[in-house]
């Protein structure tokens, strides 16, 4: 089975600080890591490979040259191959433009039976790129996967919802996005690390992947970051007083009237 895993290098938000004046992230000296949900996606791919010897796991990312380090870490965990899409023409892409590039990269890498991605990245938190890749490749998709099993040409997954889950059966090839409940990602192994340090990571530019240059990069992106800020903490709430539900309702109505909300 051939599996592609879409991954992203992100700043380790557990170590990040925010500039209180500008509201932007202070990225200096903050280590970059494999996005946590993507680690779950990779782990699931590696488990398929453990159970189906001969399977191949390819990790793919779009990013600056230093994203190679994260790809090496994926190889050290057990991925067989790694592709970095890196080109100034791809810089500044929003989710729509990013998924154009990644879909082109995946197409260029060959055909895959299964494509996995993390639910969302901890830097942008959009959860859009995985589903968009599925749309652009014309493949069925299931998001928020918390349980996974292979059943012949199908996968059976549990899709987490806010108040429960769905059990879905999807025909391969398909795209799944993983959440942290799916599994516990493995550590890099020492032999894996030695292999990874010598592994030749493929670096492809926009021309290599044959992507339409009018659909990638900052200018092609329909969304732009207008302003980043830390939301102000909400004011203290009040508990509505009253002995009976009727009294409480009356008290609530009064409070809302005082604020001219009703």
């Amino acid at each position: 089975m051939k599996i592609a895993v879409c991954v992203k290098q992100v700043p380790d938000t557990t170590e990040i600080r925010i500039n209180p004046e500008t509201g932007t992230l202070i990225r200096d000296g903050v280590p970059s890591i494999l996005n946590p949900d993507d680690a779950n996606a990779l782990e699931e791919a590696l488990r398929v490979k453990d159970n189906l010897p001969g399977s191949e796991v390819t990790v793919i990312t779009m990013g600056p040259p230093q994203a190679k380090e994260m790809l090496q870490e994926c190889i050290a965990m057990g991925a067989d191959d790694a592709i970095l899409l890196s080109d100034r023409a791809l810089g500044g892409s929003d989710t729509w433009a990013t998924s154009n590039a990644l879909a082109a990269g995946i197409r260029n890498a060959g055909s895959f039976d299964l494509i996995l991605a993390g639910r969302q990245a901890i830097d942008g938190d959009t959860a859009q790129v995985g589903p968009q890749i599925a749309e652009k490749l014309g493949l069925p998709q299931v998001t928020y996967v918390k349980e996974f099993s292979l059943e012949g040409d199908y996968v059976k997954v549990k899709r987490a919802l806010e108040d429960g889950y769905e059990v879905l059966k999807v025909k391969l090839p398909c795209v799944l996005t993983a959440i942290k409940e799916l599994n516990e990602p493995r550590y890099m192994s020492v032999p894996g690390i030695l292999k990874a340090a010598k592994h030749d990571i493929k670096v492809w530019n926009a021309v290599d992947i044959g992507v339409d240059l009018t659909t990638v990069g900052l200018k092609a992106s329909p969304t732009n970051v207008f302003k980043s800020f830390t939301p102000k903490p909400k004011g203290e709430g009040i508990a509505v007083e009253g002995d009976t539900p009727k009294e409480k309702a009356a008290s609530l109505v009064n409070a809302l009237k005082e604020k001219h909300l009703i």
Partner: peptide, 15 residues
């Protein structure tokens, strides 16, 4: 540190 050494240290720190 070589890249191998960086990764070994990183992995074991986490472990």
């Amino acid at each position: 540190y070589s890249r191998e050494q960086q990764m070994v240290k990183q992995m074991l720190k986490k472990f």
